[in-house]
Computed example of a mutant assay.
Amino acid sequence: MQTIENDVLKVEINELGAELTSIVDKSTGFNYIWEDKPKVWPKHAPNLFPAIGRSMNEHYLVNGQRYEMPQHGIGFFHHYVAEKLAANCVKFTMHSDEETHQYYPFDFTFTIQFELHGKSIRMIDTVENPNDETLSFAVGTHPAWNIPMKPNERFEDYYLTFGTKPKKLTYHEFMFDNGAPLRTGKILELQQYDGERLPLTRDLFKNGLIVFNETNKLNRLELHSTKGSQGITVHFRDFPQLCIWTQSDERASFLCLEPFYGVSDQYGQEVELMDKVGNYHMAAHELRTFTIDYDIND
C-alpha cells in the first residue's frame, strides 16, 4: 500500500490494480471512498484498461483470432510497480508481460499518477505505444464515493449537475445477458433530468448503470447535497463518456462517478479490436495522457 498526503488529506493506493482505497479528511476523519464491503460491493475504485465494460461472449478478435477479455480489462487485477515521487505524489506502472499478452497481444506501458493539491486529487493515466502498429484500447476509472457525507443525511439528499448545462441527457440502453451489461445500440433520453439537476434516488438505478454517450459533450460533473455545501466536482475533459452507478441495495451507500474512454460491446457478434466502439486509436510510438481532477467541497 502506498500513501500520499498533504496538510488536509491522506490518500492510500494499493499496488494491486493501482486502486485508490481511501481519501481521508485529516480534520474530520471522514473517508470519501467506499470501504469495500464484500457482501455489498467488494471494490473501491477499479482502474479500467484496455477494455471498458463487457466484450461479447467475453471475447474479441484480432485479425480473426479470438482473445478473452475480462469485464473492464486487466488493469484492475494486475500488480503495478510504485514509485513515490514526493510526499504528495506517487506513480504506478504496468508493463505488458506474459500475463497481459494472454488477453491483449500487444506491448504497452500504462501508468497512473496520483497528485494531491490542497483538497484536489489529480489522476493522470498515460498510455505509451511502443509498437510499429496502431493500438486500440479503452481507458477509464470506477471510483465509489461515500454518500451521504454528513450525519443525518440520506442518499436521496444528493443530486448531480453538469458543467456544460445540457438541456437534456442521453445515455446508452443496456441489456443484461448472464448478469453483465451489453449495449442494445439504442440511445435514450434520461427523463429524471430536469435540465438543471439530476436527483439521486435508488429507483434511478433500477436498471443498473447509466452511461452518458459522447454527444452530451460533458466535461464536468458536480455532486451536491441539498443540506450543505459538501460534495465532489469531477473534471474529465479527456473522456468522452461518463458512467454513474450504484446498487439498488440501500446498504450500498456510495455513488460511482466514472469517466470513460470506451464502452461495452453491443449485443451480437464478437468484433475486431479495431472496430470496438468508443476505443482510442493510438498511432505507432505515440504517448497520450488522460487527466481527471477530483475537487472535494466541504
Rank of each mutant, 00 (worst) to 15 (best):
E115D: 12
K10P: 00
N178E: 14
T134A: 10
F205R: 09
N47C: 03
L204T: 03
W145I: 08
G179E: 07
K43F: 14
G179V: 08
I33G: 05
L85F: 02
M56N: 13
A45K: 07
H44G: 03
N207K: 14
L242R: 06
S253M: 08
S120M: 09
V81P: 00
Y103C: 15
K227C: 09
N216F: 08
Y32E: 11
E83F: 02
L135F: 01
D97R: 01
K37S: 10
G228T: 07
E68T: 15
F114G: 01
I296L: 15
F110W: 14
L273K: 03
H172E: 15
L182P: 03
A18G: 11
L223V: 14
L218K: 06
V139N: 09
E214V: 03
Y280V: 09
K84F: 02
Y267K: 08
L190D: 05
M1F: 09
V139Y: 03
Y67L: 11
I296P: 01
E173D: 13
G163D: 14
S264A: 15
L135T: 01
A87F: 04
H172S: 13
E250G: 00
T134Y: 01
M274S: 15
E173Q: 14
K227N: 10
D238C: 02
Q2Y: 01
K84D: 05
N31L: 08
P166A: 07
E270A: 04
G140V: 03
S264H: 03
D97N: 15
